[in-house]
Design a protein around this nucleic acid. Structure first.
Lengths: 311, 311
DNA sequence: CATCTGATG
DNA sequence: CATCAGATG
């Protein structure tokens, strides 16, 4: 009988690959692509806030779960980068082998680093950087946790930048046990870095920390992303030398979400979750100017988040 | 590791199912759907030809490989039926379990019969009939050949109508051996029916009979649909009491194709194949008024074909 | 309701 | 270059 399932030939290595910018042609986008897309011209949230020391931002970071970088590209994602021009940007859920990432995903002026795992079309993270980077590493140096293209660490002069896509616990929490192993290992990884230089950890952390961080906390206590276990593991990190920079700036802001299910027009109704974060070492606190949730930006089921730092 | 292939739970039975018309609401179609679609108003090939006995047609038959009946529905396929209003119509490649065929696929005034096989989303044929049918059967009464939803036979007062989707020999001709078994068995099946009543056999026969029946005969002699074996098996039937009704009317018409690959704008360039036929018992010859290839009708990679009969 | 892969045509 | 299924989120 036809249509037999075929196992994918395992291409190991989450070592990642590096590209430099090629060309930056402004491509036309078809009508179909525009439907789910961010328009070419956008009014983006900006900020005049200064740091605790009254300094203006010197570095702009962006983190965005793009839900398939090839789809994101068709959805006019590049226009966002052109307008926002972050110094350092990271992607989660590329859903694309690192060797198949389109060249257009490395705009002029950036260096790019991509990491993907064994399973084609699953997970995958990327990094764009204008700022000179000292060293880029992939994974957290634990083989069992480095098979899915989830972490890129970039060492800069004054900090480590850790871009991550934390494992989803899955439907019926099938992967919650693994997630807990991950959380413990990742916590240690952050601590290790933090001993050397302050850390900026960001990405889709796949956890809404408190009830304020999702629209329906009561009905989601058994849903991946808001279980007691995931929340507590996150709390442990935040009680161990790190802060949730958004809540540091906006401790009481409600309905601030970065993810909305594609189902039932959840985004229009703002039935969402805050799953994307910039978590930073305590000692970077005084450098934070602002953290933005750009929920006006489309092109994925997550929106981009921005960290503005005076450093 | 995630994403393990899962075997489909086998739903046996190609026995088919029967529906009667429900409602016929005229649904709106979105812009996206219109891109590949037939417009709501169409100018269709019509015909004033009379039969050899100078009679006007009394019955209109349509055969159409719809390449997914759910996609075809979105592509505005119903508008075609509303305008053309065939007495008897058949579909090939429904790519849909018979229990999941949308109700809209049975327009008012028609009875419908659907047959699908073990493999979800593969093959599948359907029949719509306004004319009263005596008996409908599924398959060719050979278990090994009746697992893929390929044949519906409808007995009418004066003839058998056999709607079929003949097995594709596949890339690299992997299924040519099976196809040859099929061809032999199917030949016998037609002969058996023909002894009782004249036969109208139609559908996607997955063979271009002669060089005139495809755009590039020279480069396709090893391609499924134009191998020596498939062509000879078809010839055997046509030398055994049946005629290719289109060639009977139009023996020399070139570039008359019913299928075009989606690749490389083949349809715009008319790089096509004639794979869809009305093959009829010799003794129906004098009843044929016309056979139409409606290559102006979109919504699939095949176009519909029409048989007009005075009977 | 999106993305992706992989099978199929 | 389409369809579909099935995995995943």
């Amino acid at each position: 009988s036809p249509k037999k399932p075929v196992k994918k030939t395992a291409t190991t290595s989450t070592q990642g690959s590096q590209n430099t910018a090629a060309d930056g042609d402004d491509e036309e986008v078809s009508d179909t692509q525009q439907l789910n897309a961010t328009p070419r011209t956008m009014i983006l949230k900006t900020s005049d806030r200064l740091s605790a020391k009254n300094e203006k931002p010197t570095l702009k970071f962006v983190s965005w779960n793009v839900n398939g970088i090839r789809a994101w590209l068709k959805n006019n994602g590049l226009a966002y980068i052109q307008q926002e021009a972050p110094d350092i940007m990271c992607f989660q859920e590329m859903k694309c082998d690192k060797l198949q990432v389109p060249n257009d995903c490395t705009p002029p002026g950036y260096k790019s680093y991509w990491s993907s795992g064994d399973t084609a079309g699953y997970s995958g993270v990327g990094l764009l950087t204008k700022k000179d980077v000292i060293k880029v590493t992939f994974g957290i140096d634990i083989e069992e946790h480095d098979k899915e293209g989830r972490v890129i660490t970039a060492e800069y002069d004054k900090f480590y930048f850790v871009a991550s896509y934390i494992p989803n616990s899955g439907r019926k929490l099938v992967r919650l046990p693994y997630r807990q192993e991950w959380d413990a290992a990742f916590h240690l990884y952050l601590k290790k870095l933090d001993k050397i230089k302050p850390v900026i950890w960001c990405g889709d952390l796949n956890v809404a920390h408190q009830s304020i961080d999702l629209c329906n906390p009561k009905t989601n206590t058994k849903t991946s992303g808001f279980t007691k276990e995931e929340r507590e593991n996150f709390s442990k990190i935040l009680n161990d030398g790190f802060i949730d920079s958004y809540r540091y700036i906006y401790p009481d802001t409600v309905a601030a979400y970065t993810f909305w299910s594609y189902f039932r027009q959840a985004r229009e109704k703002n039935i969402g979750w805050r799953l994307d974060y910039f978590v930073i070492s305590d000692r970077l606190k005084e450098h934070v100017c602002d953290v933005l949730i750009q929920n006006e930006v489309y092109g994925s089921d997550h929106c981009p988040i921005v960290l503005l730092l005076a450093i």
